[in-house]
């Protein structure tokens, strides 16, 4: 236990050191908020505070964007986030998240920033070979289809051929998530940035037209087959953002999940003007798994949920 505490403390210290050197401010934002995200695949933990419904935040994103709209400049958050119904070798309902925003950065510049942080954290003897692939490149290589142009039926057919699955009539994103997580992730052993996601996986990222098809300016970082970070060249258009939230709630309804009231204060801040920026969230416990060579998140946490 002493060793784990020492190693965790050192990583947390080095993260703060990196951002201090970069002139990025650490911010604290509420863990208990009045709203939550509409993301159909996230379930927030709800709490009653003075007879009012609150949620433990699934990420500091909306509060941080409100600060950015107020003119905070570059900021980072290093602290806890909570997600209900997530538990396993790579998941703990309460976990440590690092999230940061860089104004004037696009997704490319932010990936360089993430890479620089990794180099700052990796032990000196480790020579990190950071790789870059587009989502389409790795998907075609390991699944055999172009994820942008493949139809839902083609994706479902190949999933059923390669895996034993018995669900059906799923949206395109579900088949992409299934195939990517089961057939692609394990091959991403070096620190690898995956860029340019399909339009249906955009979430809060800008979508741009590249010619053949639109791509979402979103990236993820994988290391040792583990998803570590998710970043966006941020959508700053309040109207588009509201449309995506409404679409999320429609999907939640179809999935039998309760709809979530749209965070109007967040939309207001977008209307007021979110500066052009890129942001990324990184799972710190998973990063520690990679740095300490552990294969279970509970091995890097002093108090994993099964040990409370």
């Amino acid at each position: 236990m002493y060793q784990l505490i020492e190693k965790r403390a050192s990583v947390l210290h080095r993260i703060r050191e990196y951002f201090d050197q970069q002139g990025v401010f650490e911010v604290e934002v509420p863990l208990l908020g009045r709203s939550s995200v509409t993301d159909p695949h996230l379930s927030a933990i709800s709490a009653q505070v003075q007879q009012q419904a609150h949620y433990l935040q699934t990420s500091p994103e909306f509060f941080m964007k409100r600060l950015l709209a107020e003119g905070s400049g570059d900021i980072y958050y290093l602290g806890k986030a909570f997600r209900n119904d997530e538990s396993g070798k790579l998941h703990n309902p309460e976990f440590t998240m690092l999230e940061w925003y860089r104004t004037e950065f696009n997704d490319e510049a932010l990936m360089d920033d993430v890479g620089a942080l990794l180099h700052h954290l990796a032990p000196l003897q480790v020579d990190l070979q950071i790789e870059h692939f587009s989502y389409a490149e790795v998907f075609e290589k390991h699944v055999g289809l172009n994820p942008h142009t493949a139809t839902v039926d083609e994706l479902a057919a190949i999933a059923k051929q390669k895996l034993d699955v018995h669900f059906d009539s799923e949206p395109k994103a579900t088949w992409l998530d299934l195939l990517f997580s089961h057939l692609v992730e394990k091959h991403l052993q070096n620190p690898t940035f995956i860029t340019d996601y399909t339009e249906c996986q955009a979430a809060l990222a800008k979508v741009v037209n590249t010619g053949a098809y639109p791509v979402a300016k979103r990236f993820e970082l994988f290391w040792k087959g583990v998803e570590l970070a998710n970043g966006y060249w941020e959508l700053t258009d309040a109207k588009l953002q509201r449309e995506r939230f409404v679409a999320d709630n429609k999907m939640r309804e179809a999935m039998g999940r309760p709809p979530i009231d749209i965070d109007e204060k967040f939309i207001e801040s977008l209307e007021k003007g979110l500066p052009d920026c890129a942001g990324v969230a990184l799972g710190v416990d998973r990063l520690m798994m990679c740095l300490f060579d552990e294969n279970d998140i509970s091995h890097v946490m002093p108090f994993p949920s099964k040990n409370l």
Binding site: S87, L90, V165, L176, D177, H182
Partner: peptide, 27 residues
């Protein structure tokens, strides 16, 4: 438990058919 940060959650389950003894994986 398999879940992309921004996507659908799955459970990848190893099962043993008690009649045939076959062990396989279903998601």
């Amino acid at each position: 438990f398999v879940k992309p940060g921004k996507g659908q959650a799955f459970n990848r389950v190893r099962l043993k058919n008690l009649r045939s003894g076959r062990v396989w994986e279903r998601t």
